[in-house]
């Protein structure tokens, strides 16, 4: 089992005839994702690299049975692409596009309330991957390894960093969700934490946040009240000056709110182990697992990997 994305996903790509759309559609197909076609208005009826192209999402859904979409449509038209997907019958919308105006997303958010069974991930995100099963997004597949660690993050390459550290420890990932770096995203940290908490195949979670907004604080409250699994975290942006947009549109400290310090304090107050430097994410996870076991919480059956984990932990202790 996994979260949101499993072997039943039939995926189309909106914007498949663009360079990025095509490149990543091929990469997803190679990874094992069931890519059933794509959409580019005006190019319906053609075929590109073995992908059938449709004019509309509605038509693509009708002809292929697609239930998931990956959006690469340019920023000023991407909000419309999200709405088209929802209206066309898609249930999981993954919007990779960066640079969508925030007011467009405010409108999208309002309209999507009329589609309670549709889930949007992103925009401005790397996508979602269930290692060994499927990926819908731009992350490099090979750094992942099937396992039991769930990862939630706003960013792309920093998520890869966390994934890589987990893989290096000999562990693997259940599902990794890149929720996106914009101020308004379809799935927030708290939504993702809830899903991973309820997922039987996930035994521990890494949450990667960054400055700006209060999504991490809200997720921390959820963790404190409801989480039955160990959680480790890292918050990027300790060194960021106030008022500056750090690459991600959402990563800005404004009016003294949304600082890394505040977020780290909220996370630690919820019992989350927070890595002090980005290179320590993997170790923070091990510590969170250890701390959780100590507390006497009922752990899942030990996996084969536990021995390996223990060795690493011992090594760390010696440090």
């Amino acid at each position: 089992m996994s979260v949101l994305l499993d072997k039943n996903a039939k995926v189309i790509c909106q914007g498949i005839t663009g360079t990025a759309g095509l490149f990543h559609s091929k990469a997803c197909r190679e990874y094992g994702t069931k890519m059933v076609g794509g959409v580019t208005p005006g190019k319906g009826g053609t075929e590109i690299e073995g992908f059938k192209v449709f004019d509309t999402v509605e038509e693509a859904v009708k002809k292929t049975g697609a239930n998931t979409t990956m959006i690469f449509v340019p920023a000023l038209f991407a909000a419309d692409a999200i709405l088209e997907a929802a209206a066309g019958g898609i249930k999981l919308i993954v919007c990779i596009t960066e640079g969508i105006p925030a007011n467009d997303m405010a409108k999208v958010n309002k309209i999507l309330k009329g589609y309670p069974d549709v889930r949007l991930i992103g925009p401005n995100c790397p996508g979602i991957i269930t290692p060994g099963v499927a990926k819908v997004g731009i992350m490099p597949g090979y750094i992942h390894r099937p396992g039991k660690i769930g990862i939630v993050s706003r960013s792309g390459t920093l998520t890869y960093e966390a994934v890589w550290q987990v893989t290096q420890l000999g562990l693997g990932q259940s599902t990794c969700i890149g929720v996106g770096g914009d101020p308004i995203v379809g799935t927030t940290h708290i939504d993702a934490m809830r899903l991973l908490n309820e997922d039987k195949s996930t035994s521990a979670v890494i949450m990667i946040g960054e400055i700006g907004g209060s999504n991490e604080e809200e997720a921390a409250l959820y963790v404190k009240k409801h989480m039955t699994k160990p959680v480790a975290a890292f918050i990027a942006g300790t060194s960021a000056p106030p008022g500056k947009r750090m690459g991600h549109a959402g990563a800005i400290v404004s009016g003294g709110k949304g600082t890394a310090k505040e977020k780290i304090a909220a996370l630690e107050a919820a019992g989350i182990v927070v890595a002090q430097s980005p290179g320590e994410i993997g170790n923070a996870l091990l510590e969170a697992i250890k701390k959780f076991k100590k507390k006497g919480a009922k752990s899942e059956k030990p996996s084969k990997k536990d021995k390996k984990k223990k060795n690493k932990k011992d090594k760390k202790k010696k440090k």
Binding site: S155, L158, F234, T238, M246
Partner: peptide
């Protein structure tokens, strides 16, 4: 650095 999150984290690591 490539990527906003990693770029932020790299600056943090230097400071750390």
């Amino acid at each position: 650095v490539n990527g906003a999150g990693l770029a932020m984290a790299t600056a943090d690591a230097i400071q750390h």
